[in-house]
Structure formats: C-alpha cells, structure tokens
C-alpha cells in the first residue's frame, strides 16, 4: 500500500493508494500514526480516491487514526470513499463519528 503525505498550515493530507486488507493494515496504521505524531496536525485528511477496496481491516485503520487525532484534540476527515468502502464503513457505524466528505457515488 502506497501513501503520499503533504503537511500545509496545520493540515496533514495523507493520500492512500491500493487496497486495504489485513496484509496492508498493520503497516498502514503504523505509517499514518507516525505521520500524525511527526506533524501534530489540527486536521488530518485521509484521501481514499485511489483506494478501490477495503475489508474490515480498513475499519481498524480509520478507528486508530480517529483515536490518535482525538487524543491530540484534532479532527480526522475522510475524503472520496468509493462505494465498496462505504458499504464496509456503514457496517461499522463509523460514518456517524468520522467526517466523510465528497463521497463518490
């Protein structure tokens, strides 16, 4: 799983690329949390435009990122979630607590 990060004016944007499954999740969680700890952003944006698939491991990734941002008093936003990922996220109820924007239909 590839990620690209950009930190501008207190906003950390992390672009994810690939599929989020159990194989990818552990490394992804570590990378996201390490980027958050390095930048200490007010807002962390996970851009999922190039994520075509996620299973329940993706739920764990978002929960981890959400908890870390909450501990820092910041906010997590998730952008451009594809239909398949949205269906998985709806099962978890996460879309009720995490701000999701620009949801692709």
């Amino acid at each position: 799983m590839k990620i690209a990060t950009e930190f501008v004016k207190g906003k950390l944007v992390i672009r994810l690329h690939g599929e989020i499954d159990h194989h990818a999740a552990r490394g992804l969680i570590e990378n996201i949390c390490s980027d958050i700890d390095k930048c200490l952003p007010k807002v962390c944006v996970l851009d999922m435009k190039d994520v075509g698939f996620m299973d329940s491991s993706g739920i764990a990734v978002l929960v981890k990122a959400y908890k870390r941002m909450k501990e820092l008093g910041g906010e997590l936003r998730v952008l451009n979630v594809c239909n398949q990922c949205r269906r998985v996220l709806e099962m978890s109820g996460l879309e009720k607590i995490i701000c999701m924007e620009d949801i692709k239909r």
Partner: peptide, 8 residues
C-alpha cells in the same frame, strides 16, 4: 490484534 475490528 490491533489491526482487527471484530466485524468479519
């Protein structure tokens, strides 16, 4: 582990 959500 921490990368599992219990939703499988």
């Amino acid at each position: 582990g921490f990368e599992r959500s219990g939703m499988g």
